[in-house]
Design a protein around this nucleic acid. Structure first.
Lengths: 350, 350
DNA sequence: AAACCATCATAAAACGATTTATTGAACGCT
DNA sequence: AGCGTTCAATAAATCGTTTTATGATGGTTT
């Protein structure tokens, strides 16, 4: 077989560089090359240097998978997220990738486009890479049902809570943070709050709603479950705003809902916070930039990713204890969008 | 050796399921299993069914790497980006991941934290996975110097232009788009524009600056090269705004610059567009949400990712032609932040 | 000088898959 | 029956690596 070497796009005839080639060049056996590279058995300095020189000259990098095949030592992990374009998830992946790398792992990244069936498919096909472990942000609660049966690897679930509790889990204390926001809105004197979430089938949304409604106190609080599709979400919210009973506060529970709601309020000419207070779960960069800046719950995404990775490492180290469930605390950033100006009662929007 | 099977976190004794195990269970040879799964040689329906049943029962998924080792058929590609938290890059990766999957590839995602030395390291270590090809958004122009020598795989470069032209390249027409923005600012009657970019060592920033200054016409246009570090960037820009000659327009050339500049203007009480027009290269979600919405250049990130993947596929199909360079056209979204109100001359900010 | 012991290099087997070459059975034909 | 031809299934070789067992060399101890 003829091998073409491609540097950039220039072609050259070259066999792929294997440990055998290095051994040949150094005038030693493949076993010796392996021993040098993994500092295993003792190798004399003379041989060791010859090997290192050959490695250098040929630009040899050992095939991780052939290694793994023989030694059983993995250095690949995988992460499955619902959607890479969501900044929360991409920050998660970014941090995870760094953490993994520090422990000598590379990360296979897979998105399932918010679709449960795709998630099932990905979870299956990912196994063909024999990763050491999996970190999953599931599409919905029914994760366990989508796991391939023969699964033989540790899984850490993050952010969303599966119905089946038999997983290691890293999530935030949604109810607590949502409660802080609701209590803050009530304390500001708001009387009637609409909580908007995509769907209660996502555990986060459910917990946020429950936390908010438990802490609303004297404030009337209602839920609009608006779905995941932005245009549908938009229509439902619009109907509620123009048709329903008057409101003086709105609390959106996830990223897409916040975007749609914020834009809709601007279009309807609802002034924040004069006509209506506005708060969001999941903070984004722009919420500090707009005027007034938006009160938001900031999730400790980076800390979650790091915790998830550490948990996976613990499992790989063989700690076979009961599922470990970790809830992290969010920071609530109170900003201008929910502050009632002194002495100025806000008028309910139509 | 004792094997522990971990489903979720529950342990069970099980050997890892290999093709041998499937063969044994189906009462056939491993070769037959392989033939069934790859519909290679003809297998009788009776045997075929037995094999399929065994595969099903054991939840067998072939090891992609053992496959690759023998057959030479790759199904892994890798992408290296400077920074996953940048929404432009995460959108790129997201689209790429989908495109790759559709061609039966999985994607190894690696970030190099905006550091050239880390990029070099990653490019080396990534080779140990023997990916079919690489897609790289380089940290800076000196990519070629950081490529490991023995490299034997096709590389497609995206977004940023390497000094060494011997790569397939997918980028946008920076100069053209920046020119449109500059011409628009001039046409709006602005007299003096500050262009703010991180560093000219990034080809994109250089091309944008050149495009803008070539199209400025009668408008005076100056460059501030403010660096990549946000706090330093902020100080330099602040000094320029409070100390320098008066300005009536600002054009920021990359993501981080835009964020810092926009916030700084708000703090300084500079009203957009009354006191100063504001435009940005790289559009983000929030630019449509703020008041007034911000004029921005929208790069066709998704189209770039798809084009990059197609180019890689072409190389894998063995098209060994000269480097293919593709420049895509950006959309310029003119919005309120650069529109001068009729008859109202803007006063130059201090 | 024989016996023993380190030390260091290697040959060969193994990992999990695919491929090539081989076997054996069944069938049709003279 | 003898012979060629298919067809189906498999044994064995192979990919790149690590590991285990073996062998060679030279030095120290009796």
């Amino acid at each position: 077989m003829v091998w073409l070497r491609l540097v950039g796009v220039a072609l050259e005839r070259t066999p792929p560089v294997s440990i055998k080639l290095v051994a040949e060049r150094a005038g030693v056996s493949p076993a010796t090359v392996s021993n040098v590279l993994n500092n295993k058995a003792s190798v004399s300095p003379a041989f060791s240097n010859r090997v290192r020189r050959a490695v250098e000259e040929l630009g040899y990098v050992a095939d991780s998978n052939a290694s793994r095949l023989r030694s059983g030592k993995h250095s690949l992990a995988a992460v499955v997220v619902p959607d890479l374009t969501n900044p929360v998830f991409s920050a998660f992946v970014s941090t995870l990738e760094r953490a993994a790398r520090q422990d000598g792992f590379n990360l296979l990244v897979v998105s399932c486009d918010n679709a449960a069936d795709q998630e099932a498919d990905r979870l299956r096909s990912i196994r063909s890479w024999r990763p050491a472990g999996l970190i999953v942000i599931p599409c919905d609660g029914a994760l366990a049902a989508r796991l391939p049966q023969g699964a033989c690897l540790p899984i850490v679930v993050a952010d969303r809570i599966p119905d089946d509790a038999a997983f290691d889990l890293i999530a935030v204390d949604n109810a607590q943070a949502a409660g802080v926001v609701a209590a803050h809105l009530a304390a500001q004197g708001h009387r009637s709050c609409l909580v908007v979430g995509s769907t209660l089938s996502i555990s986060n949304v459910r917990e946020r709603w429950e936390g908010a409604s438990a802490a609303a106190g004297p404030m009337t609080i209602r839920l609009l479950e608006a779905g995941l599709d932005p245009s549908l979400l938009r229509r439902r919210l619009r109907d509620r705003l123009t048709g329903g009973p008057p409101l003086d506060a709105m609390f959106t529970l996830d990223h897409v809902t916040t975007l749609v709601a914020y834009q809709l309020l601007a279009e309807l000419g609802v002034s924040i916070p004069r006509d209506m207070a506005f708060a969001s779960f999941d903070e984004a960069e722009w919420m500090r930039l707009v005027v007034p800046p938006i009160t938001a719950v900031r999730q400790p995404i980076e800390a979650m990713a790091e915790a998830a990775w550490r948990q996976l490492m613990r499992r790989l180290a063989g700690q076979g204890s009961a599922p470990n469930i970790l809830r992290m605390t969010c920071a609530v950033e109170i900003r201008g969008s929910t502050l009632r100006r002194r002495g100025e009662p806000n008028t309910a929007a139509a």
